[in-house]
């Protein structure tokens, strides 16, 4: 009898979290209610709770960004808006809120080179998973058209043109996909105003200033220091607690 109880207890301890955890949708709805009643701290906490359970969605990041915005944490708000861009980059509400949040930061307008602007636009054309499915669709279309051209005995030149156009479309799509992945993998948002230093040590010479909400590109992580680059190409070192990356994962060391 006692053996059965012990086994049941172990089973409970292992699976209790999974079995009895609240559904993310329910927590999301509860967080929305808190938000509507102006309790942004509580709403943000509930949205974060869903993230901690290992789930994420574009609307979740968007609402979390709104909660931080209302609390006056512009850096965190921009961070979560940019994370939401990974899920629905063409959403009008998201674009409006993101632009508004960016406009009230103290940092510079993110201008950069023509290529950098083009790369950002290209990276935000489609959502993370849309790039994968569109690539598959293009490959399927290319295969279908190729087989059709063989089956209907199209002229050789026409076949070549069709295949080349298909391949180019795939290559361009792949290029934008890479831009998208690179953008989200390397980008981080500054959470506190800080000086970016020439060297990764306390007391080093300041190179330039970054403000809360400024985007930076993380080039390297070394202990508790990150080498970051601003859009204008300036590079320097800043402690990792001053910024947060859009995607948490392996660092480019």
């Amino acid at each position: 009898m006692s053996k059965t109880i012990v086994i049941s207890l172990i089973f409970y301890l292992i699976f209790a979290g999974k079995v009895f955890a609240e559904e993310p949708s329910a927590v999301f709805a509860k967080a929305n209610t808190e938000y509507q009643q102006g309790r942004y701290e509580e709403a943000g906490g509930l949205y974060e709770q869903i993230l901690e359970s290992g789930q994420e969605s574009g609307a979740l990041y968007y609402n979390l960004g709104n909660s931080y915005f209302k609390k006056g944490q512009i850096g965190k708000a921009i961070l979560n808006y940019e994370r939401a861009l990974d899920f629905f980059p063409r959403d009008a509400d998201l674009q409006a809120n993101y632009a508004f949040a960016r406009s009230i930061t103290r940092g510079l307008d993110e201008r950069g080179t023509v290529f950098a602007r083009f790369a950002k636009r290209g990276a935000l054309l489609l959502a993370r998973n849309e790039y994968a499915w569109v690539a598959l669709f293009l490959l399927g279309v290319l295969a279908g058209v190729h087989l059709m051209s063989l089956s209907f005995n199209w002229r050789r030149n026409l076949q070549t043109v069709v295949i080349m156009v298909g391949l180019l479309a795939l290559i361009f799509h792949g290029f934008f996909w890479v831009l998208h992945e690179r953008f989200f993998a390397r980008r981080a948002i500054v959470l506190k105003d800080s000086s970016v230093l020439f060297e990764p040590r306390e007391g080093a010479t300041a190179h330039f200033q970054v403000y809360e909400g400024d985007p930076v590109e993380v080039l390297k992580i070394q202990d508790s220091w990150g080498k970051v680059a601003r859009f204008d190409g300036k590079e320097g070192w800043i402690t990792t607690d001053h910024f947060e990356r859009l995607r948490r994962g392996k660092t480019n060391q």
């Binding site: 929305n32 994420e56 609402n63 993370r128 998973n129 995607r247």
Partner: peptide, 29 residues
């Protein structure tokens, strides 16, 4: 001011989920 929050959460994914890493994507490919 900012636009209001979203009513629906949309589809939840596991954190870090990438469609191209899924079995379904690999099968279709």
């Amino acid at each position: 001011d900012i636009s209001f929050i979203k009513d629906r959460p949309g589809r939840f994914y596991d954190r870090g989920y990438q469609a191209w890493r899924s079995i379904f994507f690999g099968t279709v490919l």
